[in-house]
Design a protein around this nucleic acid. Structure first.
Ligand SMILES: [Zn+2]
Ligand SMILES: [Zn+2]
Ligand SMILES: [Zn+2]
Ligand SMILES: [Zn+2]
Lengths: 158, 158
DNA sequence: CATCAGAATGTAATATTATAACCTAAACTG
DNA sequence: CAGTTTAGGTTATAATATTACATTCTGATG
C-alpha cells in the first residue's frame, strides 16, 4: 500500500500528485484531461472518503461548471477507464486510486463510522483468481475486494 | 467451494436444501420463515444468477403475494441478516449462499456474459484482512470480493 | 378467553443513483 | 477550410432503495 491514510500527511501533496499523474497518463494515451474532468478528479481527491456522484454536482455548479448527472458520470467514467479512480460498489461512491496507470485488482478497507477508505495491496487476491481459473476454467478480468469495519480512530472513539 | 455451478446438477436439490437449511436456521434463532420470506428465498435460488430486487416483485405479484418494494427489501434484508443470501454489490443483485449459518468472508465469480455466479472459497482473503489489521490497526468486520470475467461456456461461445 | 406487546406486513410517497436520447460545440485531421 | 471525431449540454426517464405511518398477525400472559 502506498500510504496510510490514517496517519496525518500533507494532503495537498496527494491531490497534486494525483493530478500530475493524471496529466501524464492522459498525454501518454492521447486523451484529454479537460477542465471538468480534472476538477472532478480533484474533488474526488478532496479527502480520503469515497464520494457519491451526486455530491459532486453542487460543487461543480458552485464553480460555474455545468452540473447535471451526465456531466459528472461522464467524467467519472473517463477517470474509471483510465484507472484514476475506483468505484466502491458497496457505497455507490468513488475514490482516487493510489497507483494508477497499471490496471490492478482493487482492494479497499472502508470504515463504517467515518467513511475513510484505505487502498490495500491486493496481490494476495491474485491467488484467488488463479485458483478460480484453474479449478473452474473461468477467465478473471477484474476484481474488487471491499473490507468494512472500524478504523483505528473510530475504535478508540467507541 | 461447495459446488461448481457450471457443471450440470439437480438444481431442485439446491433449492430444497437452501429452504431446509433456512428453516433450520430460523428455528435455531427463534425467528420466523414466513411465506413471503421463504418464497423470496426460493426465487433467489431459482437459478445461479444474481437477481435484482425489482425482478422479484412481478413474480411475487403473480402468486398473490403483496408486491411493493418494501416487501421484497424486507424479505431480502431478513435473509441477508441470517446469511442466507448475499448481495453482489457490483450488480445490485442478490444470490443464495452456498453455506449459510456461519458468517464468512464472501467471494463470488460472476460471468459478465451469462450472469452466472459461483461462490468461491474465501479463506485466502482472511490473510488480507489480517494484514490490514496488523499494519493499519483497523478492525475488519465484513468483506466481499467480486471477480468478473467469462465462465467456461461463454469463453467457448466467443 | 381477553388483552397486550412485539413482530410482520400493507400502502403511499419519495429519495437516491444512473442512463438514454438527442442536440450543439469544440478539437483534431488532412 | 471541410470533414470527422470527441466532448459537453439538456431533458427526460429508468432503476434501485428507503421513509413514514397504518394495520394485522402472533405468541405470551393473566
Ligand atoms: Zn491524502
Ligand atoms: Zn487503485
Ligand atoms: Zn443449483
Ligand atoms: Zn456464502
Amino acid at each position: 500500500m502506498t500510504q496510510n491514510v490514517y496517519k496525518s500527511h500533507d494532503h495537498h501533496a496527494c491531490i497534486d500528485s494525483a493530478v500530475a499523474e493524471a496529466r501524464r497518463l492522459c498525454d501518454e494515451k492521447g486523451v484529454r484531461l479537460t477542465p471538468v474532468r480534472q476538477r472532478v478528479l480533484e474533488l474526488v481527491w478532496d479527502n480520503h472518503k469515497p464520494v457519491g456522484a451526486y455530491d459532486l454536482l453542487p460543487k461543480l455548479a458552485e464553480e460555474g461548471f455545468n452540473s447535471a448527472p451526465p456531466t459528472v458520470y461522464r467524467a467519472l467514467d473517463f477517470l474509471l477507464d483510465l484507472g484514476l479512480v475506483h468505484r466502491i460498489n458497496s457505497l455507490n461512491a468513488f475514490i482516487g486510486c493510489n497507483h494508477p496507470g497499471h490496471s490492478h485488482p482493487t482492494c479497499f478497507f472502508v470504515c463504517r463510522e467515518c467513511g475513510m477508505a484505505q487502498e490495500l495491496d491486493a496481490t494476495p487476491l491474485n491467488e484467488i483468481a488463479r485458483q478460480a481459473e484453474q479449478q473452474l476454467g473461468v477467465r478473471v478480468e477484474q476484481q474488487m475486494t471491499e473490507l468494512m469495519g472500524l478504523c483505528p480512530r473510530c475504535q478508540k472513539a467507541s
